[in-house]
């Protein structure tokens, strides 16, 4: 029956590993209501977002109501209930970056990664593009941040070079 097997996808095993991770995270932090936020942070690091069913699961384990956990998860900007891309590109739109042209940079990024109007994340879950208020690097304005790395003095042209490089690295990794 091997013909039935679709193309091998290494990602197929990810959900399982992650659910084990959720339990690991809960066990490590302790089943205490006071550690809800650290648990959510670690779960988000694992899944890149907070899936509804995992939040329900966490609520049950910590003996909280799902509505309470949902309240906490929607209160903090650091948490996302929508899946985020592998690369999260944050465009600073603080005063300094704004006047130095963060808007054209944003447009260039959205165009380059092929984002539809109103969607923050690409359909292949590769890129998420969002604006934030200040990265605290005003001297380098306009600034963007891709995952944990800061890029200063951005221009629409520079964007292409950076994303080209990301794509190449991605290809090498495969």
């Amino acid at each position: 029956m091997d013909t039935d097997i679709l193309t091998e996808e290494p990602q197929a095993m990810i959900p399982r590993r992650r659910f084990e991770k959720v339990n690991e995270i809960i066990e490590r932090n302790g089943k205490l209501q006071a550690v809800l936020i650290p648990i959510l942070q670690e779960v988000q690091a694992e899944y890149r977002y907070l899936p509804e069913e995992i939040l329900t699961y966490i609520a049950m384990v910590l003996n909280l109501s799902p509505a309470t956990v949902y309240g906490v998860a929607t209160f903090y900007a650091q948490f996302s209930l929508e899946p985020k891309g592998k690369y999260v590109i944050k465009i600073c739109d603080g005063t300094a970056c704004h006047v130095r042209g963060s808007d054209p940079v944003k447009d260039a990024i959205r165009k380059r990664v092929g984002l539809k109007e109103g969607c923050p994340t690409t359909t292949d879950l590769k890129y998420t593009v969002e604006t934030i208020s200040c990265l605290g690097a005003c001297g380098l304005a306009p600034v963007i941040m891709i995952n944990e790395k800061i890029y200063g003095q951005m221009t629409p042209q520079a964007i292409n070079i950076i994303i080209d490089k990301l794509e190449t690295e991605e290809g090498d990794a495969k």
């Binding site: 109501s65 509505a67 309240g71 929607t74 209160f75």
Partner: peptide, 9 residues
């Protein structure tokens, strides 16, 4: 029970 709670910000 806790059916209702605040959400968002």
């Amino acid at each position: 029970i806790g059916v209702l709670n605040f959400s968002n910000r």
